[in-house]
Design a binder for these strands. Structure first.
Lengths: 203, 203
DNA sequence: CTTCTAAAGGAACTTCAGTTCCGTTAATGT
DNA sequence: ACATTAACGGAACTGAAGTTCCTTTAGAAG
């Protein structure tokens, strides 16, 4: 009596289906990290995942589909935020974490590929935006705490502060190609904190 | 007695060669803007440029090669900077200009595609970084003027200020997907000016 | 104007990403 | 445990992106 009209993997998501998904997403992540979007061959991903290529084409269809699913998976996992007791410290900790991610040998290229994928595919873009919305929400409490401590003006938008902190790192990473080092991260943190104190992020 | 070892287009860069390059870069720009990297077929570009596809494959080889050449071409053109007499005004003018570019129906998607291309190809990345290095240098005088007027602390790095201004706009454009509106541009300008005044960009 | 050859162009060919077909395996409900 | 069928997997097929080969056009130099 099953309709089987949904996408493959929806009616029987357990057991083999889940194992296949895990193996394929892992292999796709490896491929993306080292060849970038455009260098990924779904048949190769299937082979490295130990899975039939028909399966990959049927369930994900395109590299963009894989990226969207991978971002959905990544959105599930959570990242513990810092709580140093001061806005500067919390922002510095987050900046350091972003720096570490973007300069990591695997994560850096992977994020670059995911963002590049989102640039040319609406579905991947939606998944990417959702991922970052969640990440930004996870870190906003740093700013809420600072508001509670009266470090920054009432009305300051927490999400805007987190975005302002992240932006310079991503800008160098994706656009200008300037070096990403601990100094850059520290500068991003102190500049954002200064701007926040001056009321630049009050909505 | 010619060696003919250089890339095609180097020995006889004038006349037909130049016309072909112009037509191909234009067609490639159109294709990138409306299909994004990955959706570009070089045979189609050749057809739309009214040029043999062999020519496109021989001179540029790949979409990435075309992107690199396009960025080299774009780096040639110059953009007039604002001079309102105050740092806030100059930065607001630049932010508005970036906003206009990124939200433009043709330029927005084109820049997205160019940046995505740079994410997976070293040659395109080098061309992109060169392009932005030039753009940042063109706008740095805004900050130098502010330094001369003692609006901001001595030792402030002009390029860093321009990057800090650009970053939030590009971050929304490429990463978070948050709306790009005049308010965002104004906030970027005032936040950057405030951070600069506080000495956050002193090297 | 003539020569030389760099660069463009056309068409056939090759290769491989992506599809289709159909048989096999195993997840779910009773 | 059994039946049902969702989902997987192997292999042959297809089409178009990209290559090769050779001919034609036209830019640069004398």
């Amino acid at each position: 009596m099953n309709q089987a009209t949904g996408a493959p993997g929806t009616a029987r998501p357990g057991g083999r289906t889940a194992r296949v998904r895990e193996a394929v997403l892992r292999a796709a992540g490896d491929a993306l990290a080292d060849k970038g979007i455009g260098g990924v061959d779904l048949a190769e991903v299937a082979r490295r995942a130990g899975v039939g290529k028909t399966t990959v084409y049927r369930r994900w269809g395109t590299v963009h589909g894989l990226v969207a699913d991978m971002l959905a998976e990544m959105a599930e996992s959570s990242l513990p935020r810092a709580a140093t007791g001061a806005l500067d410290g919390d922002l510095a900790a987050l900046a350091a974490l972003i720096l570490k991610t973007l300069t990591d040998d695997r994560q850096g290229p992977l994020f670059k590929a995911l963002i590049a994928a989102a640039a040319s595919d609406p579905e991947a873009a939606a998944a990417l935006h959702r991922f970052y919305r969640l990440r930004i929400d996870e870190w906003s409490p740093c700013v809420t705490d600072a508001l509670a401590r009266k470090e920054i003006p009432a009305g300051t938008d927490p999400a805007e502060v987190i975005r302002a902190l992240s932006a310079p790192l991503y800008y160098r990473f994706l656009v200008s190609g300037d070096p990403l080092d601990p100094d850059t991260a520290k500068r991003a943190a102190s500049a954002t904190a200064a701007a926040a104190r001056s009321g630049a992020y009050v909505v």
